Simulated assay, not measured.
Amino acid sequence: MDTPQDADEIDLFELMSSLWKQKIIIIFFVVLSVLTATAYAFLSKPIYEARIFIQPPTLNGIADFNYGRTRDAELTPFAVKDVYEVFVHNLLSESLRRTFFVEVYLPSLPESKRAGSRDALYSDYLSELTIGLPAKDQPDRYLVSVQSRDPAQATDWVKAYVARAGEAAESEMLKNVAREAEVRARNLAQQISTLQETADKVREDSVTQLREALKVAQAIHLTEPPIISGNVSAEVSATMNGQLTYMRGTKALEAEIKNLEERKSNDPFIDSLRALQIKQSFYKDLQVSPDRVSVYLIDGTVEQPDRPIKPKKGLIIALGVIFGVGLGLLVALIRHFVLIRKTTETSNQRFK
Protein backbone atom coordinates (compact mmCIF):
# COMPACT_ATOMS: atom_id res chain seq x y z
CA MET A 1 0.00 0.00 0.00
CA ASP A 2 1.26 3.52 -0.85
CA THR A 3 2.33 5.64 2.07
CA PRO A 4 1.02 9.23 2.39
CA GLN A 5 4.39 10.45 1.26
CA ASP A 6 4.10 8.37 -1.93
CA ALA A 7 0.63 9.76 -2.52
CA ASP A 8 1.86 13.34 -2.33
CA GLU A 9 4.71 12.76 -4.73
CA ILE A 10 4.26 13.90 -8.34
CA ASP A 11 4.84 11.25 -10.96
CA LEU A 12 6.38 13.13 -13.92
CA PHE A 13 5.47 10.49 -16.46
CA GLU A 14 1.94 10.34 -15.14
CA LEU A 15 1.74 14.15 -15.33
CA MET A 16 2.97 14.22 -18.92
CA SER A 17 0.55 11.48 -19.82
CA SER A 18 -2.29 13.40 -18.22
CA LEU A 19 -1.36 16.58 -20.10
CA TRP A 20 -1.17 14.64 -23.36
CA LYS A 21 -4.63 13.25 -22.76
CA GLN A 22 -5.84 16.84 -22.30
CA LYS A 23 -4.14 18.11 -25.45
CA ILE A 24 -7.50 19.02 -26.94
CA ILE A 25 -8.12 21.41 -24.07
CA ILE A 26 -4.65 22.94 -24.44
CA ILE A 27 -5.06 23.31 -28.19
CA PHE A 28 -8.48 24.86 -27.65
CA PHE A 29 -7.06 27.59 -25.43
CA VAL A 30 -4.13 28.16 -27.80
CA VAL A 31 -6.45 28.54 -30.77
CA LEU A 32 -8.80 30.79 -28.79
CA SER A 33 -5.94 33.00 -27.62
CA VAL A 34 -4.38 33.20 -31.11
CA LEU A 35 -7.72 34.09 -32.68
CA THR A 36 -8.31 36.77 -30.08
CA ALA A 37 -4.81 38.20 -30.54
CA THR A 38 -5.12 38.08 -34.32
CA ALA A 39 -8.46 39.82 -34.23
CA TYR A 40 -7.02 42.52 -31.98
CA ALA A 41 -3.94 42.92 -34.18
CA PHE A 42 -5.87 43.29 -37.42
CA LEU A 43 -8.93 45.14 -36.14
CA SER A 44 -7.14 47.70 -34.00
CA LYS A 45 -6.59 51.05 -35.64
CA PRO A 46 -2.92 51.52 -36.58
CA ILE A 47 -0.78 54.15 -34.88
CA TYR A 48 1.71 56.13 -36.99
CA GLU A 49 4.72 58.08 -35.74
CA ALA A 50 6.25 61.14 -37.42
CA ARG A 51 9.72 62.21 -36.28
CA ILE A 52 12.01 65.21 -36.68
CA PHE A 53 15.70 65.27 -35.80
CA ILE A 54 16.98 68.70 -34.74
CA GLN A 55 20.54 69.99 -34.50
CA PRO A 56 22.22 73.38 -33.85
CA PRO A 57 22.15 76.11 -36.53
CA THR A 58 25.16 77.08 -38.62
CA LEU A 59 27.31 80.17 -38.15
CA ASN A 60 25.73 81.59 -41.28
CA GLY A 61 22.29 81.10 -39.74
CA ILE A 62 23.07 83.25 -36.72
CA ALA A 63 25.23 85.84 -38.52
CA ASP A 64 22.53 88.53 -38.58
CA PHE A 65 22.07 88.25 -34.81
CA ASN A 66 25.68 89.46 -34.52
CA TYR A 67 25.28 92.41 -36.90
CA GLY A 68 26.98 95.34 -35.14
CA ARG A 69 27.96 93.20 -32.15
CA THR A 70 31.69 93.49 -31.56
CA ARG A 71 33.79 93.49 -28.44
CA ASP A 72 34.85 97.05 -29.27
CA ALA A 73 31.18 98.02 -29.18
CA GLU A 74 30.84 96.36 -25.74
CA LEU A 75 28.40 93.81 -27.17
CA THR A 76 29.65 90.22 -27.07
CA PRO A 77 28.80 88.32 -30.27
CA PHE A 78 26.42 85.38 -29.93
CA ALA A 79 27.85 81.88 -30.40
CA VAL A 80 25.93 79.02 -32.02
CA LYS A 81 25.59 77.45 -28.56
CA ASP A 82 24.00 80.60 -27.14
CA VAL A 83 21.33 80.75 -29.84
CA TYR A 84 20.64 76.99 -29.76
CA GLU A 85 20.21 77.03 -25.98
CA VAL A 86 17.41 79.57 -26.39
CA PHE A 87 15.70 77.25 -28.88
CA VAL A 88 16.11 74.15 -26.69
CA HIS A 89 14.70 76.06 -23.72
CA ASN A 90 11.57 76.88 -25.72
CA LEU A 91 11.36 73.38 -27.21
CA LEU A 92 11.33 71.76 -23.76
CA SER A 93 9.22 74.42 -22.06
CA GLU A 94 5.99 73.44 -20.36
CA SER A 95 4.34 76.61 -21.67
CA LEU A 96 4.75 75.46 -25.28
CA ARG A 97 3.39 71.99 -24.43
CA ARG A 98 0.35 73.52 -22.77
CA THR A 99 -0.26 75.98 -25.58
CA PHE A 100 -0.05 73.24 -28.21
CA PHE A 101 -2.36 71.05 -26.11
CA VAL A 102 -5.02 73.75 -25.87
CA GLU A 103 -4.76 75.19 -29.38
CA VAL A 104 -4.07 72.07 -31.46
CA TYR A 105 -4.63 68.80 -29.60
CA LEU A 106 -7.94 69.49 -27.88
CA PRO A 107 -9.72 70.89 -30.97
CA SER A 108 -8.82 67.70 -32.85
CA LEU A 109 -10.75 65.51 -30.37
CA PRO A 110 -14.47 64.73 -30.67
CA GLU A 111 -16.77 66.63 -28.35
CA SER A 112 -17.57 63.52 -26.30
CA LYS A 113 -13.90 62.89 -25.50
CA ARG A 114 -13.19 66.54 -24.79
CA ALA A 115 -15.77 66.44 -22.01
CA GLY A 116 -13.62 63.99 -20.05
CA SER A 117 -10.93 64.65 -17.49
CA ARG A 118 -8.52 67.37 -18.65
CA ASP A 119 -5.66 65.77 -16.69
CA ALA A 120 -6.30 62.40 -18.33
CA LEU A 121 -6.36 63.99 -21.77
CA TYR A 122 -3.13 65.83 -21.04
CA SER A 123 -1.51 62.57 -19.92
CA ASP A 124 -2.57 60.92 -23.20
CA TYR A 125 -1.22 63.93 -25.09
CA LEU A 126 2.18 63.67 -23.40
CA SER A 127 2.38 59.99 -24.32
CA GLU A 128 1.81 60.88 -27.97
CA LEU A 129 4.23 63.84 -28.07
CA THR A 130 7.77 62.98 -26.97
CA ILE A 131 10.99 64.99 -26.99
CA GLY A 132 14.36 63.52 -26.16
CA LEU A 133 17.94 62.75 -27.12
CA PRO A 134 18.23 60.06 -29.79
CA ALA A 135 21.82 59.26 -28.76
CA LYS A 136 23.84 59.94 -25.61
CA ASP A 137 26.97 60.70 -27.61
CA GLN A 138 25.18 63.63 -29.32
CA PRO A 139 23.84 65.81 -26.49
CA ASP A 140 23.00 68.70 -28.83
CA ARG A 141 20.77 66.62 -31.14
CA TYR A 142 17.09 66.27 -30.28
CA LEU A 143 14.28 64.04 -31.53
CA VAL A 144 10.67 65.20 -31.58
CA SER A 145 8.04 62.57 -32.38
CA VAL A 146 4.26 62.59 -32.58
CA GLN A 147 2.01 59.52 -32.65
CA SER A 148 -1.42 59.57 -34.25
CA ARG A 149 -3.90 57.33 -36.03
CA ASP A 150 -3.66 59.69 -39.00
CA PRO A 151 -0.16 59.76 -40.59
CA ALA A 152 -0.82 63.16 -42.18
CA GLN A 153 -1.90 64.60 -38.85
CA ALA A 154 1.18 63.21 -37.11
CA THR A 155 3.42 64.83 -39.74
CA ASP A 156 1.63 68.18 -39.55
CA TRP A 157 1.72 68.22 -35.75
CA VAL A 158 5.42 67.44 -35.40
CA LYS A 159 6.26 70.13 -37.96
CA ALA A 160 3.97 72.64 -36.25
CA TYR A 161 5.39 71.93 -32.80
CA VAL A 162 9.00 72.42 -33.88
CA ALA A 163 8.05 75.50 -35.90
CA ARG A 164 6.37 77.05 -32.85
CA ALA A 165 9.46 76.41 -30.75
CA GLY A 166 11.57 78.02 -33.47
CA GLU A 167 9.31 81.06 -33.71
CA ALA A 168 9.36 81.53 -29.94
CA ALA A 169 13.16 81.25 -29.87
CA GLU A 170 13.56 83.69 -32.77
CA SER A 171 11.22 86.16 -31.11
CA GLU A 172 13.18 85.92 -27.86
CA MET A 173 16.50 86.39 -29.66
CA LEU A 174 15.19 89.38 -31.64
CA LYS A 175 13.92 90.98 -28.45
CA ASN A 176 17.31 90.44 -26.81
CA VAL A 177 19.11 91.99 -29.79
CA ALA A 178 16.70 94.94 -29.94
CA ARG A 179 16.91 95.53 -26.21
CA GLU A 180 20.72 95.48 -26.14
CA ALA A 181 20.87 97.78 -29.19
CA GLU A 182 18.42 100.14 -27.48
CA VAL A 183 20.57 100.23 -24.35
CA ARG A 184 23.70 100.80 -26.43
CA ALA A 185 22.02 103.66 -28.33
CA ARG A 186 20.89 105.21 -25.05
CA ASN A 187 24.42 105.03 -23.65
CA LEU A 188 25.78 106.72 -26.78
CA ALA A 189 23.08 109.39 -26.54
CA GLN A 190 24.18 110.07 -22.98
CA GLN A 191 27.81 110.42 -24.09
CA ILE A 192 26.77 112.80 -26.89
CA SER A 193 24.68 114.88 -24.50
CA THR A 194 27.57 115.09 -22.04
CA LEU A 195 29.95 116.25 -24.76
CA GLN A 196 27.48 118.89 -25.97
CA GLU A 197 26.88 120.21 -22.45
CA THR A 198 30.63 120.33 -21.86
CA ALA A 199 31.13 122.24 -25.12
CA ASP A 200 28.50 124.80 -24.05
CA LYS A 201 30.31 125.34 -20.77
CA VAL A 202 33.65 125.67 -22.58
CA ARG A 203 32.16 128.30 -24.92
CA GLU A 204 30.76 130.25 -21.99
CA ASP A 205 34.15 130.12 -20.29
CA SER A 206 35.86 131.27 -23.50
CA VAL A 207 33.50 134.26 -23.81
CA THR A 208 34.19 135.22 -20.19
CA GLN A 209 37.96 134.99 -20.69
CA LEU A 210 37.78 137.01 -23.92
CA ARG A 211 35.69 139.75 -22.25
CA GLU A 212 38.28 140.15 -19.53
CA ALA A 213 41.04 140.27 -22.15
CA LEU A 214 38.98 142.89 -24.05
CA LYS A 215 38.85 145.08 -20.95
CA VAL A 216 42.62 144.94 -20.66
CA ALA A 217 43.09 145.72 -24.36
CA GLN A 218 40.69 148.67 -24.12
CA ALA A 219 42.48 149.93 -21.03
CA ILE A 220 45.80 150.11 -22.88
CA HIS A 221 44.15 151.22 -26.12
CA LEU A 222 45.45 148.16 -28.01
CA THR A 223 43.31 148.00 -31.12
CA GLU A 224 45.39 145.55 -33.14
CA PRO A 225 48.15 143.12 -32.24
CA PRO A 226 51.60 144.73 -32.01
CA ILE A 227 53.84 144.29 -35.05
CA ILE A 228 56.98 142.44 -34.04
CA SER A 229 59.51 141.43 -36.63
CA GLY A 230 61.73 138.36 -36.70
CA ASN A 231 61.42 135.12 -34.76
CA VAL A 232 60.09 136.93 -31.73
CA SER A 233 56.85 137.72 -33.69
CA ALA A 234 56.08 134.02 -34.15
CA GLU A 235 56.80 133.27 -30.49
CA VAL A 236 54.58 136.09 -29.24
CA SER A 237 51.75 135.20 -31.65
CA ALA A 238 51.85 131.62 -30.43
CA THR A 239 51.46 132.69 -26.81
CA MET A 240 48.57 135.15 -27.24
CA ASN A 241 46.38 133.03 -24.99
CA GLY A 242 45.75 133.02 -21.28
CA GLN A 243 47.19 136.15 -19.72
CA LEU A 244 48.42 137.44 -23.10
CA THR A 245 45.06 137.14 -24.84
CA TYR A 246 44.56 140.90 -24.64
CA MET A 247 47.49 141.28 -27.08
CA ARG A 248 45.22 140.20 -29.92
CA GLY A 249 43.71 143.66 -29.81
CA THR A 250 40.19 144.93 -29.30
CA LYS A 251 39.09 144.32 -32.89
CA ALA A 252 40.04 140.65 -32.84
CA LEU A 253 38.65 140.11 -29.37
CA GLU A 254 35.32 141.74 -30.16
CA ALA A 255 35.04 139.68 -33.33
CA GLU A 256 35.78 136.44 -31.44
CA ILE A 257 33.26 137.29 -28.71
CA LYS A 258 30.57 138.07 -31.25
CA ASN A 259 31.29 134.89 -33.16
CA LEU A 260 31.08 132.73 -30.03
CA GLU A 261 27.86 134.37 -28.84
CA GLU A 262 26.16 133.97 -32.22
CA ARG A 263 27.30 130.38 -32.72
CA LYS A 264 24.20 128.20 -33.08
CA SER A 265 25.87 124.87 -32.39
CA ASN A 266 29.12 123.65 -30.94
CA ASP A 267 28.82 120.22 -32.59
CA PRO A 268 31.30 120.89 -35.44
CA PHE A 269 33.95 121.78 -32.84
CA ILE A 270 33.54 118.68 -30.63
CA ASP A 271 36.10 115.96 -31.30
CA SER A 272 34.68 112.41 -31.87
CA LEU A 273 31.09 113.71 -31.74
CA ARG A 274 30.25 112.70 -35.30
CA ALA A 275 31.60 109.19 -34.76
CA LEU A 276 29.40 108.78 -31.68
CA GLN A 277 26.35 110.11 -33.54
CA ILE A 278 26.91 107.63 -36.35
CA LYS A 279 27.10 104.76 -33.85
CA GLN A 280 23.99 105.97 -32.07
CA SER A 281 22.06 106.15 -35.33
CA PHE A 282 23.22 102.64 -36.25
CA TYR A 283 22.08 101.04 -33.00
CA LYS A 284 18.90 103.09 -32.90
CA ASP A 285 17.81 101.81 -36.32
CA LEU A 286 19.26 98.29 -35.92
CA GLN A 287 16.76 95.63 -36.99
CA VAL A 288 17.24 91.92 -37.66
CA SER A 289 14.95 90.25 -40.18
CA PRO A 290 13.49 86.92 -38.95
CA ASP A 291 13.74 85.59 -42.51
CA ARG A 292 17.52 85.84 -42.46
CA VAL A 293 18.23 83.97 -39.23
CA SER A 294 17.73 80.43 -37.94
CA VAL A 295 17.90 79.05 -34.42
CA TYR A 296 17.93 75.35 -35.36
CA LEU A 297 18.36 72.97 -38.27
CA ILE A 298 16.29 69.95 -39.25
CA ASP A 299 18.52 66.96 -39.90
CA GLY A 300 17.14 65.21 -42.97
CA THR A 301 13.66 65.46 -44.41
CA VAL A 302 10.33 65.11 -42.66
CA GLU A 303 8.28 62.50 -44.51
CA GLN A 304 4.81 61.20 -43.84
CA PRO A 305 5.04 57.71 -42.25
CA ASP A 306 3.64 54.87 -44.35
CA ARG A 307 4.13 52.02 -41.86
CA PRO A 308 2.38 51.96 -38.47
CA ILE A 309 4.40 51.39 -35.31
CA LYS A 310 1.38 49.92 -33.51
CA PRO A 311 -0.04 47.37 -33.30
CA LYS A 312 2.92 45.01 -33.87
CA LYS A 313 0.96 42.14 -35.34
CA GLY A 314 3.68 39.51 -35.24
CA LEU A 315 4.51 40.22 -31.61
CA ILE A 316 0.85 40.26 -30.59
CA ILE A 317 0.17 36.90 -32.27
CA ALA A 318 3.33 35.42 -30.71
CA LEU A 319 2.22 36.62 -27.29
CA GLY A 320 -1.21 35.14 -28.02
CA VAL A 321 0.38 31.74 -28.68
CA ILE A 322 2.43 31.93 -25.47
CA PHE A 323 -0.56 33.06 -23.44
CA GLY A 324 -2.76 30.32 -24.95
CA VAL A 325 -0.21 27.61 -24.21
CA GLY A 326 0.25 28.86 -20.64
CA LEU A 327 -3.49 29.11 -20.02
CA GLY A 328 -4.14 25.67 -21.54
CA LEU A 329 -1.40 24.06 -19.44
CA LEU A 330 -2.72 25.78 -16.31
CA VAL A 331 -6.25 24.47 -16.91
CA ALA A 332 -4.92 20.99 -17.71
CA LEU A 333 -2.78 20.95 -14.54
CA ILE A 334 -5.70 22.07 -12.40
CA ARG A 335 -7.88 19.29 -13.88
CA HIS A 336 -5.07 16.77 -13.35
CA PHE A 337 -4.62 17.58 -9.67
CA VAL A 338 -8.38 17.76 -9.08
CA LEU A 339 -8.77 14.26 -10.54
CA ILE A 340 -5.88 12.94 -8.41
CA ARG A 341 -7.43 14.46 -5.29
CA LYS A 342 -10.82 12.93 -6.05
CA THR A 343 -9.20 9.54 -6.71
CA THR A 344 -7.28 9.72 -3.43
CA GLU A 345 -10.37 10.66 -1.45
CA THR A 346 -12.33 7.83 -3.03
CA SER A 347 -9.57 5.29 -2.18
CA ASN A 348 -9.39 6.46 1.42
CA GLN A 349 -13.14 6.09 1.84
CA ARG A 350 -12.99 2.48 0.57
CA PHE A 351 -10.27 1.49 2.99
CA LYS A 352 -12.22 2.95 5.87
Rank of each mutant, 00 (worst) to 15 (best):
V236P: 05
Q243I: 14
T250S: 15
K258A: 14
T250I: 03
V236M: 10
K251F: 03
K258W: 04
G230V: 14
I257F: 03
N231W: 02
L244V: 11
S229E: 11
T245V: 06
P226T: 09
N231S: 15
N241D: 12
A234I: 03
E256W: 02
P225N: 08
G230H: 12
E235L: 14
T223K: 06
S229F: 06
G242E: 05
H221T: 13
A255E: 10
L260W: 00
S233M: 13
M247W: 05
Q243A: 14
A234T: 09
M240I: 06
M247Q: 14
K258E: 11
P225W: 01
I257W: 02
P226W: 05
V232P: 00
H221Q: 12
Y246L: 09
L260N: 10
Q243P: 09
V232Y: 10
T223D: 12
E235K: 15
A255R: 04
Q243T: 15
I228H: 06
E224V: 10
T223S: 10
N241K: 14
R248P: 00
A238L: 05
I227S: 09
A238K: 13
A238I: 03
S229M: 09
A234R: 10
G249F: 00
N241I: 14
G242H: 03
E256S: 15
P225G: 08
T239W: 02
M247K: 05
K258R: 13
A252R: 01
N241M: 13
L222Q: 09
S237G: 05
I227A: 13
L260I: 05
L253E: 03
S229R: 12
V236E: 08
G242K: 03
T250Y: 01
A238P: 04
I227R: 10
A252H: 00
